[in-house]
């Protein structure tokens, strides 16, 4: 691979890793809150979280570009705090990615927390486990598969981003020039050989990542047996 492409790869991996970590830190409590929430405002928050799924990335990118510019408050505050401009920086594309990939992390986690329900948490509380203890010893082990899915989807989706980065990051080598943008450059320059190389490597790595998720989420070998035990018990209680 050519040097500048390698640099784009490193930038991409840095951005995606950082984004995934931030997403897990923000997404987990948000998903928990949504899973337990009964208020009618729940649908509004859910809609906001899901928005990046349907919105053209350029729309989100456009609004973020405005917000990040030094003329507006978020951009101003950033500049005051760090002394640097937010728009067209590495930080900008990370913030953009976090917003853009949020549903890919929040939705699987929310579904997992809803499925887990309260019954095991109640059992844990009655054995003396506090809320944080319960999260790490009951919730996390039982929803591990969903955390893997959420993290992988968040990471993969961030790697594949294009429109939003073009809008708020531009194309600065070593800072905001990621693989998808490098690919676009090669195509524009009719350098199809390098475009092929980048495309095939992105395709293969995405394929490998997704296959790994599905493999990790495969049911354990004893699962069918569980089901028979459960149905037997349900039948019995139905007889009562």
């Amino acid at each position: 691979m050519i040097n500048s492409d390698l640099q784009a790869l490193i930038t991409t991996l840095e951005m995606a890793t950082l984004t995934t970590i931030i997403l897990l830190l923000i997404g987990t409590p948000l998903a928990w809150y949504l899973a337990k929430m009964t208020s009618r405002f729940k649908v509004i928050i859910e809609a906001v979280v899901a928005l990046p799924l349907v919105l053209p990335p350029t729309v989100l990118g456009f609004y973020l570009l405005i917000a990040f510019s030094p003329e507006y408050l978020p951009g101003q505050m950033w500049q005051q705090a760090t002394g640097q401009q937010l728009a067209f920086s590495f930080s900008a594309i990370v913030i953009g990615s976090v917003l853009y990939s949020l549903p890919f992390v929040v939705q699987p986690l929310q579904k997992a927390f809803e499925q887990l329900g309260d019954s095991l948490l109640e059992a844990g509380a009655l054995l003396g486990a506090g809320p944080i203890d319960r999260f790490f010893t009951i919730v996390l082990p039982l929803t591990k598969a969903s955390f893997i899915t959420a993290a992988s989807l968040g990471f993969a989706h961030t790697v594949g981003e294009f429109g939003i980065i073009l809008m708020i990051g531009g194309n600065i080598p070593g800072e905001t020039r990621v693989l998808s943008i490098a690919l676009f450059d090669h195509v524009e320059a009719f350098d199809y050989a390098r475009a092929h190389l980048l495309s095939i490597s992105l395709l293969i790595s995405s394929m490998v990542l997704l296959a790994a998720i599905y493999w990790l989420n495969l049911p354990k070998r004893n699962k069918p047996k569980d089901l028979t035990v459960n149905t037997k018990r349900e039948e019995q209680s139905a007889d009562e």
């Binding site: 019954s119 095991l120 109640e122 059992a123 844990g124 009655l126 003396g128 009951i138 018990r233 209680s237």
Partner: peptide, 15 residues
């Protein structure tokens, strides 16, 4: 978790 009261449920709720 502060009550020192135990509860056995109808569905055993094992981990």
């Amino acid at each position: 978790e502060q009550r020192q009261v135990g509860l056995v449920f109808q569905n055993s709720r094992l981990f």
